[in-house]
Every structure is written in structure tokens, then in C-alpha cells.
Design a binder for these strands. Structure first.
Lengths: 277, 277
DNA sequence: CGAAACGTTGACGCACGTCAATGATAGTGG
DNA sequence: CCACTATCATTGACGTGCGTCAACGTTTCG
């Protein structure tokens, strides 16, 4: 029926598609994104409503496919609705380095608003769905609601903080500490709490993908995972991370979540009202 | 609104200090900063004037001293007027990783506007002078001139791009490529041109500081510098980098300056192939 | 049920770290 | 301007964490 409608009239086909698989996910994704922003920025009712009214086109992406290619000139940002999405930098021989990981609710390339020519590729690590939100709509929003602009800006800054920690990770920690740190960070980011209450979280990531994020090889990630498992710190199996001993894991990682800017470690709320005037 | 007695007092103190320490440095530093912003953002006359009228207190810092400590809650951003400034993350055993290098004209911690609790330390690599610009003044500026806010935001995004490249550097390149890449990047950033015309540039950085930026040890940086020198690519001596063969150096680094978002590559479109696997 | 992707493990090599000694430079005070 | 001294650069010998290669077991999914 869907195919039939599309073959008759593509515009109507799009509308049908929207009604069937778009309206729910879109709103839900925006709500997750709003929730994420609200962890670090205060938005009033009008601003929240305007944000939730953002337009966007959902796009399904197969695993191991680029969502945005290196150097592409984009006119939209990608909000992750489902799956795991990574940002990649790579060398000519194919070796690559993940410079960011994004789960549902993250706007994976919000920075593209300020730099439309992608400096890194956006890649689906698993089968994924992203909501493509036009830059024009985002610009209109930030122009009308400066507090939303500030929230976006702050989001980019937090992404930068994460990269800084990854640099420390890759540059100065040994494999064990690197892996432990990433496991801790993802626990916090996915649970959205500095001290995750759950002892496990879902993440469908392969050891090779972990290796790309950690500046290691998959073989060494495998050995290091084994070590963490045998020490009783944490384990990864069947798309689930299990944390056996949070304190020991955080200690091995020298993990301090304050760089994520969550409410628990936020100090004074900077005067957003100044921006809004 | 923010005109407590304290801020009035500090404004007066500021004026006195300016008259004592020559009025030049502040204006000159802001001009360099404006020039840097203008490479990537368009600002009109009024916006430029307002930016140049920013208040700020110059501060001299001895070499090897923190300008902002890790975790400090700051109410100002630091514009580098003179010297070399770095951002550091570090481990408990003292090993550290530089996550950013800043020369005169760079606002080293502009992101602090959006995250006042410093996620990394700001450190003077050489004797340095920074201009401390109150957040309140910057917020007032961005509230009145959204284009300036966008320029600031874009600046933060470029800093993020640089960190992404550093991650690739540290995670996936060997020592030779890392060093070559950093030498190329600094050449471009200091000359502010994607294809620097000068064959050398001044930078007072020690091999140990290079090592901190590259995730290496000073001993290995020394060996790698020797290799680059003997290959006739580049050399570092007496606070000067000499580039003997730009093409060979850029090739060794796989250096592509487009991530720096300079005007030259806002036009050109190098279509790099992207691999999916 | 079959094939492709992913995980696991061992043997071995190498890039880079560590340790340590010595030479070169630069900043400081007399 | 010279001694004095701390910092920085250089080099060799040697250790090690991680990469490479290769084989095989396991899971996933069409």
C-alpha cells in the first residue's frame, strides 16, 4: 500500500510515510534531545514548545554506512533517534579514529550549524535512525530564542570537553585505563546521571569499534576486556555492558564526571537572562 | 543590573591600570582577536566596534604557571596577548596531555562562557600576557549582537575540529606524522593562511611541551625531530620552526587544512572519498 | 542451515618508553 | 661581561605495551 501510494504520487507517498513511521519518532526524539539540553541549560515553556515543534525528516541508515561523508556540505543536522552513531577521522591507509559517539537523543553534528562543511564523517555503527533537521529551522529557532542558541552552543562545548578527555585517554592512559574510562563515560551519558544506579546498560558496539574510539586494535581491546572481566571490574557481552564494581572501575579510569557538565556538578547557573534580553 | 559596587570599583581599577601599562596591548589584542574571528565570520562595523570596546584586565604570567586551575570557577575569559598558552588535562601521576595550544589573538578559554567550571587547566608555556575579559561583558555583547555570538560559537566549533584532528594524530599516527602534522597546523594558524608563504615561524616551545601535545615523551620527540631534520623536512631551533620542504612535510602529515575553516577552503571543495565497510 | 561477521587466543616484532649520562643554552646576579 | 646554575637538548642501552599475523571458535542473521 505504501509502495502503491508512492508510485502514484511521490508527495502523497511521503505524507503517508510520515503518518506511518514519522510522527511518533520525531516528537519522541526531540523530547529526548530537549531532555538532554535541559540537563545543562534552563529553557522556559515557550522555548521548549518551539524546540519540540522543529521539523525534520527521519532517515533509516544501515549499519556501517556513512550518514554524512567527510567534506560534505550539509544543510541539516542529525538527531539520533535510534542506534549508535559515530564521528570519524581517518588516514589514507584506512586506519580511523572515532572522535565522538552518539546515542539516541544526541544531536550528533549540531556543530554543522556553524560549519556546514563536515570536518569529519558521520557514520552509523549499528542500524540507526536519524532525524534530519534543516539548518534553516534551527537558525530561525536560535534567532527567536537566544536561550536556545546558548543551549546549543553549550552542547557543542560539552562535546569539546568530551574530546579533550578522549585526548587524555588516548595520549596518556594505558589500554586498561582507556577502556575503563570509556565504559564509565558511556554509563554516565546513557543514564544521564553522574552515579549510574543501574549496573548495566545496552550498547551494541563491536570490539573493533571500541578500538577505533580508543586508538587501539580490536585484538588488544579483546585482551583488555578480558583483563577487566577477570579482575571483576566490568564486562561486555551481547550488546550489554555490565559494571561489576563501579568504584574500582572509576578508580582504574581516574574517572571524574564533572567534564560532562551534568547538574550534579554544575555550579552557579550562568545568567541566561542576559542572552534572552 | 550587574552594576554592583564591586564591578564599578574594578572598572576604575582597570582604567588606572590601563593608563599605567600603556593603553596599547588591550586594543591591539582585541584587534588580533577580531581579525581571527573575521577569518571565519562576517561582522559589520558596529559589531566590530563593540567588540573592540570590550573591557579587560591585562595579566602577566610567568612561564610554567597555571592561569586557570583545573576546576576553577571563572567569571572571565582569557585572550592571549603575548606568549604561548596551553590547555592541559592530566593524570594523578603527573603525566599530562595538552589539548590545545594558543598564540596571541586566540581566546584560549572562550568556551568558559558556556561552562564556567574549567574542565581543563590553562597554563602558560612561556612567559605570557593574557587579557582577562569579564563574562558579563561578553554576554552583554552577544545579547546585543547575535552575529558576534555566532562568531564566538563558531570559534568554539573550530577549536573542537582542532581537537578532533589531534585525536586522530595521537590515536592513529606514528610519531613522525604527529610531529609533522602539528608543525603544519601551527604554521597555518600562526600565518593565518592555508599555504604559509614564510618558510619559518617563531614558537618558543620546548621538546617536552611538544611531547605533551603529541602524547609522546620528550626523548622520543627529540629523536623524531632529528629524523625530520635529517630528511630535510623541517627543524626547530632557538624558538623558530624552519620548514625546508612544505610539500613533503604536509605529505608526511597527511595534512589537510580545511578543518581550520579558513576562507581559502570555504570556497574550494576537495571531494575526498569516504569508505564504508 | 549456511555464510559472514565477530570474538578469542598465541607467537612474535616493533615503536616508543624508561633510565641515565653528558653536552648545549639561556637566564641571573655579581 | 663573566661565572653560575637551572633548564633544555641529545644520545645510547634496554625494557615493554601494543601491533601484526594467523588460526580457530562463536554468534548472528538472512
Amino acid at each position: 500500500m505504501l509502495a502503491h501510494a508512492r508510485s502514484i504520487h511521490s508527495q502523497i507517498g511521503l505524507l503517508v510515510e510520515e503518518m506511518q513511521l514519522e510522527i511518533g519518532p520525531r516528537r519522541q526524539g526531540l523530547q529526548l534531545f530537549l531532555q538532554r539540553l535541559s540537563l545543562r541549560s534552563d529553557l522556559n515553556g515557550e522555548e521548549r514548545e518551539a524546540l519540540l515543534a522543529l521539523p525534520g525528516q527521519p532517515q533509516r541508515v544501515e549499519a556501517h554506512r556513512d550518514i554524512v561523508g567527510l567534506g560534505d556540505d550539509v544543510d541539516h543536522a542529525c538527531l539520533v533517534l535510534d542506534g549508535l552513531v559515530g564521528r570519524f577521522a581517518q588516514l589514507s591507509d584506512g586506519r580511523r579514529q572515532t572522535i565522538g559517539l552518539h546515542s539516541p537523543g544526541d544531536m550528533a553534528d549540531l556543530y554543522s550549524l556553524m560549519m556546514p562543511k563536515a570536518p569529519s564523517a558521520l557514520h552509523a555503527l549499528t542500524k540507526a535512525t536519524v532525524l534530519r533537521i534543516p539548518h534553516a529551522a534551527l537558525r530561525k529557532l536560535t534567532a527567536r530564542y537566544p536561550a536556545v542558541g546558548a543551549a546549543f552552543w553549550r552542547d557543542c562545548v560539552v562535546d569539546g570537553n568530551v574530546m579533550g578527555q578522549w585526548l587524555l585517554n588516548v595520549g596518556r592512559r594505558e589500554a586498561r585505563g582507556r577502556l575503563a574510562h570509556l565504559i564509565c563515560e558511556l554509563a554516565v551519558r546513557i543514564s544521564r546521571s553522574e552515579r549510574p544506579s543501574e549496573r548495566s546498560y545496552p550498547i551494541r558496539i563491536t570490539q573493533e569499534q571500541l578500538a577505533d574510539a580508543l586508538g587501539l586494535t580490536s585484538v588488544h581491546v579483546n585482551r583488555t576486556l578480558k583483563a577487566l572481566r577477570e579482575e571483576g571490574l566490568a564486562s561486555l557481552a551481547k550488546g550489554q555492558v555490565h559494571i561489576e564494581d563501579w568504584d574500582a572501575l572509576a578508580a582504574a579510569a581516574e574517572f571524574d564526571p564533572s567534564y560532562l557538565g551534568l547538574p550534579e556538578s554544575r555550579v552557579a547557573t550562568p545568567a541566561l537572562s542576559v542572552q534572552g534580553s
